[in-house]
């Protein structure tokens, strides 16, 4: 492995005066982006909670059909990946290359495991005939099947939107893993892992809210 001297000084973009001005700007920019993501999800949550307020029995009955135990385990997986990405961030600050790359890879693995389990869950719902769109047969034997369709529309929309954001987060971490592998500029890698860590923690927060409101509130 070529061991060129590690760059101790931080590379500063021409428009910035100092390194911490640059880091502050990056963090502020990332937090503002997370604000937009939060408001994006809260728009969908508003629609869900308005309908939940209007059709609470139908939504509770429909929520009863979901695999809440499997999804509960999945949530634990995602929380673990939240831990590993935070530790990776900390390791990067401490310039510990092996720990950073290892924990980052572990985070990606946990994320992929989550998506795999989610895919399995979708497949079992598909087989149980609980997909109310793409003109699939909707076989829901509980009370009030029409409003149950509305619930499942929201179930697939919210979890689908979340899965899309996970894919974005995973690919970002994948890029960081590859580009940071040779550890040429550890400050840049630390900054990138810090930003990706913020995004991944946000994805965790969204899943905690999605899991609770879709699976648990209705039971």
């Amino acid at each position: 492995m070529t061991s060129r001297s590690n760059r101790t000084t931080v590379i500063i973009a021409h428009q910035f005066e100092s390194a911490d001005q640059q880091l502050d700007a990056d963090l502020l920019g990332m937090w503002l982006f997370l604000v937009t993501e939060l408001l994006l999800f809260s728009g969908a949550f508003l629609a869900f909670s308005v309908y939940y307020h209007q059709y609470s029995e139908a939504f509770s009955a429909a929520a009863g059909e979901l695999h809440w135990l499997l999804a509960g385990f999945n949530t634990a997986l995602l929380l673990t990946s939240g831990l590993t990405v935070a530790l990776a961030e900390q390791a990067a600050v401490e310039n510990n290359r092996r720990a950073t790359l290892g924990l980052l890879a572990l985070t990606i693995a946990l994320g992929l495991a989550f998506l795999a389990l989610k895919g399995y869950e979708y497949h079992s719902e598909y087989r149980a005939g609980l997909i109310p769109f793409l003109d699939q047969p909707f076989a829901f034997d509980g009370p009030d099947p029409i409003h149950a369709m509305l619930f499942y529309n929201f179930y697939f929309t919210l979890t689908g939107l979340h899965a899309l954001h996970m894919i974005i987060g995973l690919s970002a971490m994948g890029v960081i893993l590859v580009s940071g592998y040779r550890w040429r500029d550890r400050h840049r890698v630390a900054r990138q892992v810090r930003i990706a860590g913020l995004y991944w923690a946000f994805v965790d927060i969204v899943w905690v809210l999605v899991y609770t409101s879709l699976y648990l509130v209705g039971r």
Binding site: L38, L40, G43, F133, L134, N153, F154
Partner: peptide
């Protein structure tokens, strides 16, 4: 603060029109 809510509204509108996911 405002544009993301438009984005999610258009996403919900789009999936309802394209895939029949009735929101």
């Amino acid at each position: 603060l405002a544009t993301p809510v438009l984005s999610v509204t258009l996403v919900l509108l789009g999936i309802e029109r394209a895939f029949g996911i009735g929101i």
